[in-house]
Design a protein around this nucleic acid. Structure first.
Lengths: 256, 256
DNA sequence: AACAGTGTTTCGTATTGTGAAACATTTTTT
DNA sequence: AAAAAATGTTTCACAATACGAAACACTGTT
């Protein structure tokens, strides 16, 4: 299973693969730890870290462990892709979170997954908390399902071709047939529900955000514990979320 | 003026120096353009870009120009340094922005400059807009001055040793003596004003945020056009900003 | 005092990055 | 319509640079 690298800078690839280790929800790493994780030689790892440290891409914390540095934060904020989506979603998301008092997420479909571009967290103690910039499975989240439902038939069939439907709870949809039925229903209703399909006790509701050409470009979801998510609230939640979606759409349509 | 690189991965350094070009407020670059800007050979630049593209760190836009890619956004969001500051400041900043209807900034002192960690933008047409993750001079901004004022005498004298005080308007403080007087007054008053010291027509007001040990860790500033910033508003602005600062401090003190 | 962990430095070797030149496309000028 | 001037991309012999085993320095534990 050798990777084919036509003619690329291997040490640059190594450097970034090293940084990607930090996706593992672990903020601080030692040299040997990283060497083990990446499979690189101890010296190579050390040299890479020294290089990255000289650039402020990583830095040492008080325990002399390596953590990601502020230069990376700086560079990440320069990324222009979907910047308008991120900017325009910010205030509407805060408003929704304030009204509903649950965590609100904003995301797009990318590489057959949901990419979270923004969020506004509930101030309650018991809440959902997702990392912006992280990915989640589409077929078992309200956000993912609503994005799929309003996508083209081609994209959906491509999705089903590439993604394995794995069960996380007894509610997870694990057959293509059932997922297609669900997506069809979502498209009719105009919103998607995740009734504990990814995690027990977790319920989400999501609606799409459209561009000028009526194509789905993003989605908004509200997530909370089943204890607080009563079916009689769905309608009022929906109207609040829709108001936010319309505000984002208004900005987007003006922008382009 | 050759740079001394003890024993580092030169191509990794080149790759990141290439990415830093994007700090220039220009989102899309061609190969030759980047080669010229960095001083690298055209082929080297192309190879670096191909490598970065394979990693999703850069990507091509519709015009086949290179832009920063979403992987960089993803990695930037993993940076844990000052993450608590960023998280805890979010909602208070939004509240201040909503009350005052001007742009609110949140930042720290780093490398003798102000680093903006967060913001909440005014919804008005005429507004200040700064890039999160970017830097600004400390001596001619309210945020910078308030951060300096409450720092240690050592840090301040170190600051004066390393920073050249350059005039941007007729109001800019350009002598060490005057700056020291100003910082002393700020410390007494508890807040800093920037009366068009960086840019004509731009007024800011800032207060410090303290940690448990009463050390300044960050600052909040409100910025707006002089046309809207009347001296009779200052007192009410201050009390609103202070409320936000106290909320951030409460979270910070609970957290540590 | 010996041991088992860290991170760091050294240096000969071989892999890997380099860049001029040629090539392929597209856009602009004549 | 042809020529010129841009752009991005590929090739390949050569030289620079990344590699990693081993030794070292340091810290905390047994």
């Amino acid at each position: 299973m050798e990777e084919v690298n036509k003619d690329l800078n291997l040490s640059v690839i190594k450097a970034f693969k090293l940084l990607e280790v930090y996706l593992d929800n672990k903020q601080e790493w030692g040299v040997r730890e990283l060497a083990k994780k990446t499979g690189y030689n101890k010296t190579t790892t050390y040299r890479l870290l020294s290089t990255l440290e000289s650039l402020d891409i990583v830095q040492k914390n008080d325990d002399d462990k390596y953590i990601l540095g502020l230069k990376l934060f700086e560079l990440g904020n320069l990324v222009s892709v979907h910047k308008s989506l991120r900017t325009f979603s910010r205030i509407p998301l805060e408003n929704i979170a304030k009204d509903i008092k649950e965590t609100v997420h904003f995301g797009i479909l990318r590489n057959n997954q949901v990419l979270y571009l923004n969020k506004a967290e509930s101030e309650q103690g018991l809440k959902v908390s997702t990392q912006i910039g992280s990915y989640q499975k589409a077929y078992c989240t309200a956000l993912g399902k609503v994005l799929l439902a309003f996508s083209s038939a081609n994209l959906i069939s491509d999705y089903l071709k590439h993604v394995k439907l794995e069960a996380f709870t007894t509610n997870t949809i694990i057959t293509s047939k059932n997922l297609l039925v669900e997506l069809e229903q979502i498209k009719t209703k105009g919103y998607a529900l995740d009734m504990e399909e990814l995690e027990l006790g977790l319920i989400c509701i999501a609606i799409p955000v459209f561009n000028k050409n009526k194509e789905v470009v993003a989605g908004i979801s509200v997530s909370g514990p089943s204890s607080r998510f009563k079916s009689e609230n769905i309608a009022s939640y929906l109207s609040i979320i829709k108001k936010g979606a319309m505000e984002i759409e208004r900005h987007l349509h003006d922008y382009n």
